Simulated assay, not measured.
Amino acid sequence: MLRALLLALILTLPAGAGAVEPDEILPDPALEARARAISEGLRCPVCRNESIDESHAPVARDIRLLVRERLLAGDSDREVTEAVVARYGEYVLLRPTAEGANLILWLAGPLFLLAGLGLGWSVIRARSRAGEAEPLTEAEKARLKDLLGG
């Protein structure tokens, strides 16, 4: 039992960023560290919520190489990210910006939460004001008994 639990725990742990291949690694450790930091914020376009460093998809490799090419060309981290977004779209950002159309998505959750709380509060308040229902008359009790087959 303990072995099975331990095995299940090990299998659910993340595998880590093992997708970066040795031929992609830059010889300059500082540039490689910058490339890894940028890659942490970029999503693989074909994988679900995997950074490009975690993904084994060919397009993720292409993006990793593009990041490293831009760094070697002397671009800043922001310029590299902007180049990737310009080429692959804003979907590649694991943390999209809170501007423009994305602002609607950022605000929709809290707004719906507030609307739901307001609706719930108004329903509870309306029920508390309604009071108790009037008791059934003898005729209504007889009709109910007939309907229920009793």
Rank of each mutant, 00 (worst) to 15 (best):
E50G: 02
S55N: 03
G100A: 03
R127K: 03
D28V: 14
M1S: 14
R143D: 09
E90M: 04
A15G: 10
P135A: 08
A98S: 00
V20P: 06
L148P: 00
G131D: 01
L2R: 15
A37E: 12
G18Y: 05
N49S: 06
V67G: 07
E69C: 06
V80N: 08
E132W: 04
V46L: 04
L26F: 06
L147G: 11
A126H: 01
E54S: 10
R36A: 07
D53P: 00
A126W: 12
A57R: 10
R43E: 13
P29T: 12
K141R: 14
I52G: 14
Y88L: 01
H56K: 11
G74Q: 09
S51R: 14
G100Y: 04
E24V: 02
S76Y: 11
D75Y: 13
R143I: 05
K145Q: 13
G74V: 10
V80H: 05
L117Y: 14
E24Q: 09
S55E: 12
E21W: 00
A17Q: 11
R125F: 05
L9R: 07
V123C: 09
V46E: 01
L114S: 09
F112N: 02
S128C: 06
G16E: 00
A83E: 12
P58F: 00
V80F: 03
P22A: 14
W121I: 06
E54C: 01
A17E: 10
R95N: 00
V20D: 02
P45M: 07
L114K: 03
W106V: 15
L31D: 04
R48P: 00
W106Y: 15
G131K: 12
E79H: 02
L94Q: 12
V20I: 15
E99N: 04
S128I: 08
M1K: 15
V84Y: 07
R48W: 06
L103H: 06
L66M: 15
L103A: 14
V80R: 07
V67D: 02
L113Q: 05
T97N: 10
R87M: 10
L9K: 12
P58H: 04
H56W: 03
R68D: 03
S76I: 08
G149R: 15
R34K: 15
P27D: 13
